[in-house]
Design a protein around this nucleic acid. Structure first.
Lengths: 365, 365
DNA sequence: CTGTTAGCGCCTTCAG
DNA sequence: CTGAAGGCGCTAACAG
């Protein structure tokens, strides 16, 4: 049906092996032969059969990128950066496959199986991980198998996997055939959150609401920990209040909206609201505005991530910048084995406080 | 190295053929045998070798989704919707591969080749197409080959391919083996733009600036045509001005910013600015604000697409809603052959004017 | 530098 | 319902 290597070989008057060599270019071939082959390829409109070559070569050029929500620019930016490193021009020549888990642990596992089935060259897991022990265990197992099958595994925007307890000492000698633990590009969420809350405290805020992400996510936990660490630093008494002034929700606009209404109910005297991320912050702002509160006059608001729209929000959003593109690109290079592994296998990306117009000192009094 | 079908067969005490049948489930197998096989699969942690089965079966479960910019929620939402239809639960069981072309025609072609090489089951091209004749031709050729190779091709958010001139009458009998022209889910950009401009005109605006997208894109052209049609409807004299009040740029925030500054230079008396899309509108707003102009007091602003952040912008953005999720889902179903083809192969998605706070009557006088 | 020879792992008739 | 056998298209030694 479709034209095959053999057809091209026949047409060019050479053997199939030669055609293969010309196409993969990893073996010397005489100039004349080469161009004859190339012409035959052109004329026959030949396109390599990927599955066949993957089977024979026992490798594929697929790289899986798992994201929690592809419609969220946070992930879009990371995925785009990972993919940019795969460009044929950049020596990658891999096909980056973006898979949308929707934040579901089961789908995460399903996609990993699918990717293992495809014998993916690498897999990049992005964004916060779910902290359920059962899932962590299942995930670790799956990743171990992938690594064992020769697939490079890279984590981006989530912490390294917790040390496996069950494997005892045998795992001590990592870095061997199994590739060791997955390489990680982690974000300094804790530090960023801490600086952000510190900023609010320095402005004089004391009643600070926090609309956090889903409870069982690493990113949520780290940001919350940073927040509370800052509170504790300033005055341990604030810590007591923190619990009451925290609500959880999804990483989306409506949870910011709903969360803010709830916080306002719990504490009408709120002078600031921190959001799990910039998207949530948008919802926070909307709720505040509808409640007749001005930003930052009555209530200061801050987000996290510094997505592109944040600087253009009105008022411009104070937030914590994560160099998402750079992090994604790094992860991409690690996935291709084009960057050497960071010390300890973990590269932590710095975050930067971006003070803009949505935060100000609370009304005096 | 890895465990294969044969290993499983040996373990279960059956033949490889039986294991294959159990796994693909498309052939009767005795209950007892089946569970014995399944257990062996579990115990051996067997994972099908995708390339091998694709080779043998001459089909793959990959579906390519080409997007112009994966970091843009416009595409993220569409891609997410396409992918949601591929869920194993939904009977899809396909692996949706999101490929980021960055709007580059060459990369579009490159990815299509890559996907053809993988023997993709289907390909969905999303977003505006580049209108360069050479590229259109090359694209049409590539798509024809894909279709001929059995890959389903679906267009989403771009118009159907122009009729091929070269093929003469032979193409008349479409719908045969080659699957005919690609199925299309088109957006009514023209109609939406027309209603939007109509809205502005009805409010009393006459000096309306337009920050358009890149000149050679179908979406850009259609929105511009709708805009001008509305102007012409109202008063042909406005049409004469339209050219002068239009600037082109990318579909991003900064082109909105820069474009607005340019428009203001050309026509300080502007009372409204229409943006190529919501993201561009954000840039427009920023530029206006920096110029000391209030929205909509001094200048009205409107976007296009109705991305999630638009309703939360301040002021909330008047825009044209495109049901991106629904369109993407439809495209996904068409790609899987799960929806029957729309009449004429083209489904046009309605757009809806969303009037919000960023547009108002111009200052009297 | 080029051709020959074996598979890669699975699917799919064809018998039984 | 199950097994045996051939081949999908390509790559990778191995000879020349």
């Amino acid at each position: 049906m479709a034209v095959t290597l053999a057809d091209v070989a026949a047409r060019a008057g050479v053997s199939a092996a030669t055609v293969s060599r010309v196409l993969s270019g990893n073996y010397p071939v005489a100039g004349a032969t080469r161009s004859r082959v190339l012409r035959a390829v052109e004329e026959l409109e030949y396109v390599v059969n990927g599955p066949a070559s993957s089977l024979a070569a026992a490798t594929s050029d697929l790289v899986g990128v798992l994201v929690n929500d592809i419609a969220d620019p946070f992930f879009g930016i990371i995925a785009s950066a990972v993919q940019s490193e795969m460009e044929p021009e950049k020596g990658g020549g891999k096909l980056a496959v973006v898979c949308n888990t929707g934040g579901s642990p089961e789908r995460e596992l399903t996609y990993l199986t699918l990717l293992q089935r495809q014998r993916a060259a690498a897999v990049v897991l992005t964004g916060s991980a779910v902290e359920d022990p059962a899932h962590t265990e299942a995930l670790a197992t799956r990743l171990r198998r992938l690594a064992a099958a020769g697939t490079r595994v890279v984590l981006c925007g989530r912490p390294p996997l917790p040390e496996a307890d069950g494997d005892g000492g045998r795992d001590g000698q990592r870095g061997a055939a199994d590739g060791g633990a997955p390489l990680t590009v982690a974000f300094d969420n804790r530090g960023g959150a801490r600086r952000l809350t510190g900023h609010l405290l320095a402005l004089g805020h004391r009643r600070i609401g926090y609309v956090a992400g889903p409870a069982e996510r690493t990113t949520t936990r780290h940001r919350l920990e940073g927040h509370r660490a800052a509170l504790a630093d300033h005055d341990r008494a604030l810590l007591a209040e923190a619990e009451r002034l925290t609500v959880h929700g999804a990483y989306d606009r409506s949870s910011g909206y709903d969360g803010t209404l709830e916080l306002l109910r719990r504490e009408p005297g709120l002078t600031a609201v921190l959001a799990a991320n910039d998207t949530v912050a948008l919802g926070v702002c909307a709720a505040l505005r509808e409640a007749g509160l001005s930003i930052p006059g009555d209530v200061s608001v801050a987000g996290f991530d510094d997505l592109p729209f944040s600087a253009d929000a009105s008022p411009a959003l104070t937030t914590v910048r994560i160099p998402l593109h750079g992090a994604g690109a790094r992860a991409g290079r690690l996935a291709l084995g084009r960057d050497s592994a960071p010390p300890g296998g973990v590269a932590t990306v710095r975050t930067e406080l971006m003070v803009r117009a949505s935060t100000a000192a609370p009304r005096s009094g």
